[in-house]
């Protein structure tokens, strides 16, 4: 039963990764791509981590996996905030990226 649940969660996580990647490729501008990215970061990795934690077989490893997810969403939200702010700033004063 646990195994079935874990497999389902992992596959659902991969589904969100798929959505995030398709969004990254297909959306028209930086801000919508950011939006797609957060789906993979939060939900995709979250579901996958939950499934993997069920299979890990020890509470210590499950907690470690939970920590990975926690750090990932903190890092991702800060990174996305910074990149969005950067895109806004650079958009105002011309593209200087490929210096």
């Amino acid at each position: 039963m646990t195994t079935f649940l874990a497999c389902g969660l992992i596959l659902a996580g991969v589904g969100f990764y798929l959505a995030g990647t398709v969004g990254l490729l297909r959306f028209p501008d930086v801000y919508s791509r950011l939006h797609a990215l957060t789906k993979a970061d939060n939900t995709g990795l979250g579901l996958l981590a939950l499934g993997v934690a069920l299979l890990a077989g020890s509470p210590r490893l499950a907690l470690l996996i939970a920590l990975v997810w926690l750090v990932a969403i903190i890092a991702a939200s800060v990174a996305c905030h910074l990149i969005a702010g950067y895109a806004l700033q650079v958009g105002e004063c011309g593209d200087e990226d490929d210096r």
Binding site: L24, L37, A40, L45, V52, D97
Partner: peptide, 21 residues
């Protein structure tokens, strides 16, 4: 733009983390 590339790098990072798990 550079921001797009870095976004894609961030997604690659998250995907790698998923793979490692």
């Amino acid at each position: 733009a550079g921001a797009d590339r870095i976004l894609a790098v961030q997604l690659s990072g998250t995907t790698t983390v998923g793979l490692l798990l």
